[in-house]
């Protein structure tokens, strides 16, 4: 019961950060700032959702795979953020006009 409550709490927190990322995408004035919002808020959202689900899994192997997914998602989002930042920077510098 306590575990269930804890997991609900974590899931709600995760949702909150997902919605924050969405709001950031909507409200932040420039694209770099939106990239900041997405990278940070989304990772935290996914991490919290994953932690919340950890209390609901049937066995340890599930838990290991959950953590693996999250770790990879962290790496992926860091790389994605970097790639997009470079792309954006190149556009702003005027090397590439194909916006």
């Amino acid at each position: 019961m306590i575990l269930d409550a804890l997991s609900v709490l974590l899931l709600l927190l995760g949702l909150f950060f997902f919605v924050s990322g969405l709001l950031g995408l909507w409200r932040f004035p420039d694209t770099f700032a939106r990239l900041h919002a997405l990278t940070k808020a989304d990772n935290l959202g996914l991490g919290l959702v994953m932690t919340g689900l950890l209390f609901q899994v049937p066995d340890v192997l599930w838990a290991i795979k959950f953590i693996l997914v999250w770790l990879l998602a962290l790496v992926a989002s860091a790389v994605n953020a970097h790639l997009i930042a470079v792309f954006l920077h190149r556009q702003q510098e005027g090397h590439d006009e194909s916006a």
């Binding site: 924050s20 709001l23 409200r27 932040f28 940070k40 808020a41 935290l44």
Partner: peptide, 17 residues
Amino acid sequence: SLRGGLDIALRVWQPRV
């Protein structure tokens, strides 16, 4: 990471960004 997420959330939910 937690601090980063909170930082974004604080900025986003303010009436003026």
